[in-house]
Amino acid sequence: MSLKSALESGKFVVTAEVGPPKGTDIKKILHESELLKGKVDALNVTDNQSAVMRISSVSFCKLLLEMGQEPILQMTCRDRNRIGLQSDLLGASILGIKNVLCMTGDHPNAGDHKEAKPVYDIESVQLLKVVAGLNAGKDMMGNELKGATDFYQGAVVTPESNPIEPQLMKFEKKIEAGANFFQTQAIYDIDKFKGFMSYARKFPVKILAGLVLLKSAGMANFMNKFVPGITVPQNLIDELKEAGKEKAMDAGIGIMARHIKQLRDEKICDGVHIMAIGAEDKVPEIMERAGLL
């Protein structure tokens, strides 16, 4: 089932993500993808995540299609100007890629090619408009396309961004620009997230709550300190600590499973986006413990 049909069917949707490696050895990512096959509804393929140069997102999306999976093409504006972006979108379309997640992209400063020239010719809101245009058979300049695209358009939002007001105004711009679904930045406080959802529900878009697997108390503290827009509440950090080093990952899986269950049982949002960050093999277990498998 396509991501669009899954979301529109009203089922609780699960997406996860895989990051293509640096280099041509893809055994590991193929194995992870295989593990998730038939379990998640769609798989994001990151686009040179954290500005670290890796295999292109489009190429791996194509391999996922060949495996019979539903890929979500992440597209950032960091590395391509408007000509490159549109050209790659048309390319993705003829390969059969149906979902595109439009993002601005981390600055090269965060990555392993700090001397790169950042492009940002356009940005996330404008890219969503561009995709809507391609879907309507027109390029950015209004030139007629010989064959339109048919993308299901995704975007990201950070529900715990601080300050929140400009973030929400941008969220609304993204909806206006054509976003159909959102995957959020990681959330850990379900009550706070309910607040965001009661606002977001006013709009005709599907929302997948972003969940990042906590592997240790140290990781939680690190994210609190260094990752903007993510707050892990103290009670969860304590829970990881109490579990002890050996069992921390297990506790993290338990926390995520519990959150997923609550989000689904209370119908808080339309699904979840699981970011296991290096522990993709744990996703089936998480889903099982959440009662999804």
């Binding site: 601005t104 965060a110 940005e123 961004s161 400009p166 930045q185 903007p228």
Partner: peptide
């Protein structure tokens, strides 16, 4: 640093830039 035209990116952090 990204020359964005439509609001802050996800990296904005209590008034500071990512």
């Amino acid at each position: 640093p990204k020359g964005l035209l439509n609001g802050p990116c996800g990296g904005t952090n209590e008034g500071k830039c990512e």
